[in-house]
Design a protein around this nucleic acid. Sequence first.
DNA 1: TGCCATTGGTTTCAGATGAAACTAAATCGG
DNA 2: CCGATTTAGTTTCATCTGAAACCAATGGCA
Lengths: 155, 155
Amino acid sequence: MASAKQKPSPADLLVLEDFLPYRLSILSNRVSRAIAARYAKTFDLTIPEWRIIAVLGRRPGLTAKEIAEATEMDKVAVSRAVARLVVAKRLRASADADDARRQNLSLTAQGESVHARIAPIALAAEEKLLSALDARERRELDALLDRLLVAARSL
Amino acid sequence: MASAKQKPSPADLLVLEDFLPYRLSILSNRVSRAIAARYAKTFDLTIPEWRIIAVLGRRPGLTAKEIAEATEMDKVAVSRAVARLVVAKRLRASADADDARRQNLSLTAQGESVHARIAPIALAAEEKLLSALDARERRELDALLDRLLVAARSL
DNA sequence: TGCCATTGGTTTCAGATGAAACTAAATCGG
DNA sequence: CCGATTTAGTTTCATCTGAAACCAATGGCA
């Protein structure tokens, strides 16, 4: 009998626990949930809303479209989150001088306050997560993520 | 006038584009979407369903609860995905001898077929993503993810 | 044995989500 | 200028999602 040449089954190759997309998904979910859990109830804020506050904190005056690009959320999500934030008086929308369809969005004092209170919480969580790594490893992680983010764009 | 001591605003510290949880979320979403796009329509399969097929491919006979643990999906999602897969004759559910509440789940021939056809697609996407990295960097990424996954568990 | 707490799994309900249709304003081409 | 196209943003609709309630079987344990 000739030596048995085993055909590798896909099961041998695709091990969910080792599969990068799966691992990224699990890690991302764990982290996002943990952080959201810390602010969601206290501040009555969803993740999309928090992202909008975070980006407007640094870059006031963006339009909904620009927010969508900056945060990689779709425009429906942005539209809804902005609407909620405006009702909650956390965002101010002012008509754009050049284009009546656009609104320039920025944080109100209340919005700033939310931002100022959540940012430290978020940063502390990030720091806690990163405490598993030393300085060199953090730089390495950053560099790897940069490249994976680029590569993932053209998948 | 005394030298102005600037109080750093949270905006200076929390830059969304540099914030690890955010970057992980973007990366994970890009990857998952890209892969799902390749099989979702063709095979009429959702991500939860695909995960269940993947895990049962390697570990036949798991119960719904074990699947939920293995895939970190919640039991509602598992229950629904299993129900769909059974209807589609991709999974077979057989009563557990010891406990009438449990069902042992495994792939049917059709389920195996789906598995065998999707696994290469998924692996090719992973490989394409990883092509941005050399062997040493891949090992490093793996090691870093291992540790972050552990750290994220206790956030 | 018979009751109670626990566990595996499903259903319900209310909110989140996204693709596609839509509205209104701006731009383009003639 | 005027209609056709594009763009910013909203609404609709159908689906997805998860927390909580629920049901049924099991495992204590008195």
